[in-house]
Simulated scan of single mutants.
Amino acid sequence: MDGLDLLKQHWNKDNNFPKVDKEQIKSMLYKSSSSIVKWIFIISVIELALGIVWAFILPTDERMHSSIYNVVYIVFSVVFYVVIGYFIYNFFASYRNIKNTTNTKILLETILNTRKHVNHYIQFNIYSIIFTFAFVTIEMMAMDLIDKTAGNIIFQIIFMVVFISLFCWLFILLVKVYYKILYRRLVRKLDKNYEELVRIEEGS
């Protein structure tokens, strides 16, 4: 149990515990929420940086890529980074709003917006992974099945679809576990702060 939870527990239940003004509790909740959103912002920036580095160091064979592949890859990359940039901007804006506000209503609204953006951020990344696997699979099949017999084409399509689908499913499962450990954990803490702030305001 962290210091804020311990303080709130005594504040609620122990009459012998030194009295703490509600404004002090609210101030601690503001700081806690600001810190949580800051970490969401930092983690998303680190993920973006690692993704860019990975894209540069990952070896590619340009001979395997058709002109259509290159066009789709460029369009997808631009859209992906623009959307990710939008989420990161919102995380930073939420952090600044919480850090600079003393208005509980604004804080509550910012917490709700942050939770919504985190959920959309996670969904977008998962859908991007699915699209990437599907697109790479189609490209591989298109390049590999040239001049093959009908029987070989059917067999290889079934094999590649099953194998890559299983690999994609396992990879997404790992990604969901990662998001659950990091983002969901932080969001749950934000939810606790939100509920406590609402309870304090209703008891005013």
Rank of each mutant, 00 (worst) to 15 (best):
A134G: 07
I138C: 06
T60D: 03
F56D: 08
K38M: 15
Y73I: 04
V82G: 11
M140D: 03
F91G: 06
R96F: 15
K99P: 11
A49G: 14
I46E: 10
T104N: 10
T101Y: 08
F41T: 09
A93C: 12
D147V: 00
N113T: 15
A55N: 14
L108M: 09
L107E: 07
S94I: 02
I126T: 06
V72P: 04
Y127N: 09
W39C: 14
T114P: 08
I98C: 06
I68W: 02
T149G: 07
Y73S: 05
T104Q: 10
P59K: 05
D61Q: 02
K99I: 14
L112M: 12
D144F: 02
F92M: 14
Y86F: 15
H65T: 03
S44I: 03
W54Q: 13
V75F: 07
M140T: 01
A49W: 08
N119S: 15
S77E: 09
V118D: 00
Q123E: 09
Y127P: 03
V83Q: 05
N125E: 08
I146L: 01
N125M: 12
N119A: 13
M64A: 07
T114R: 05
V45H: 11
N103K: 11
F92R: 13
N100I: 10
Y81F: 15
I84F: 00
V136L: 11
I74R: 13
K105W: 06
F124G: 09
I40V: 14
F92T: 06
N70G: 06
I106D: 10
V71A: 05
E47N: 15
H120P: 05
I88E: 07
I57F: 00
R63L: 01
I74D: 07
F41A: 09
V72R: 11
D61E: 05
I43H: 04
N125R: 13
S67Q: 04
F92A: 14
Y81V: 08
V78N: 02
I46D: 14
V45Y: 06
N90Q: 11
